[in-house]
Amino acid sequence: MTEALLTVSGLSAAYGQAKVLFGVSLEARRGEVVALMGRNGAGKTTTLKAIIGMVEASAETLRFDGHDIRRLETFRIARLGLGYVPEERRIFTDLTVHENLAVGLRPARSGRAPWTLDKLYKVFPNLAEMEGRRASAMSGGEQQMLTIARTLMGNPDMVLLDEPSEGLAPVIVEQMAEAVIAMKAEGLAVLLCEQNLHFAAAVSDRAYVIEKGAIRYAGTMAELEANDEIREAYLTV
């Protein structure tokens, strides 16, 4: 079997003295959508930030596309083709939609058709209509689309997607799900942090469940859906 696109093992992280992750291990293969499920504060966001190099972390293994990325600066990890879509969106509100996308632009790696604006606007039709608008004037759902589109402009092989469905209206959640499916169709791998089981189940192939900074469950999405016990223990109250 070929090596996974992203391999994480023994990942631990802390904010100062506050420990958040205790040896997280997970992996994702090319073209695979993997859900990282867990309640608030379980360590989902920190896991993503530790992978992309935004929080100090230690790991036994942290490999992406054959590269050891443990000591790399964030921009170098991004240039290897690992995109990051933060939960708090962090779009550049002073910039227009078009300019936000321009910041994300990076040449495509060989062997892949690049994301063009046209292609992106097919996935996110709302964005096409507001190209020149300032991002601060967008609704939450539109901002969420923009932050994903901005990362796709970098032509990544994999996207770390943090709670894309949070706080959004149902119709937008549906578009988010379609976007994830479109990304998969393009051959991208996605690591999706979610609390919303329905949303995750609709788009993911496999799932991990994280609780108190450690992985408690790993399996296919179908298995997780069928497993009442795990769901009760780690996802609901």
């Binding site: 469905s165 959640v173 549906e174 799900a177 379609e178 499916i181 329905h198 609709a202």
Partner: peptide, 15 residues
Amino acid sequence: VYLGDMGVEAAMRAR
């Protein structure tokens, strides 16, 4: 609520 009360229908449709 804890399993995601919003967008359930939507997600199912997408599925």
